[in-house]
Amino acid sequence: MIDVTDLVVSYGTATALDHVTLSVRQGEMVALLGPNGAGKSTLANTLAGILAPVSGTVRIGGRLALIPEGRQLFPDMSVADNLALGGWRSGQRDPSAVYELLPRLAELAGRRAGVLSGGEQQMVAFGRAMMARPEALVVDELSLGLAPTVTADLAAHLAELNREHGLTVLLIEQNARLAFELCHRAYVLESGRLVAEGESAELAEDPRVASAYLGGAIT
């Protein structure tokens, strides 16, 4: 569903992604780990078509939606309008399917997006991405700045969509515990290069990954 081959993306003279190759099969849920500045968001924006690659190829086998880092809502607009604009590409303006998936959003529909809590805003960003009726979803930092219970709630929705509707997911995370729990496979990106990849269980055993992302041995 998502095939990235030998991708190079740069900002002027600074190379953000250096010959990255990765793939996510249809219906798969894969994690991408890495510290700040590794190039994770650059990859997300390139997959969404917002950034253009210098070289290499990006192939997407269906409709792709992005939940960007920092939610990126339209703060002065209502939740309902934010959702409606999420359907710009798909032509879907009626949010009832998203309300069914995330009933809390129906209660928030008339509120201004900018005044909501972080968790509620992330839910709006989630709902807005789902309005595009995506076959593949790229989630950039689901857990950033959110309380663990809120993250767990959103992660459960994501897992359900993956399991029951076959939604392909690339989960970009700094929280490796969450990523390994949700995804069976993961990539590790550092300074624009992929430095590790494999089954989540194996990566969690890898001492380098464990010390960098899990704060030592897994308990």
Partner: peptide, 8 residues
């Protein structure tokens, strides 16, 4: 940026 994210 968000406008571009949703495809506008």
């Amino acid at each position: 940026y968000a406008a571009r994210v949703v495809g506008i």
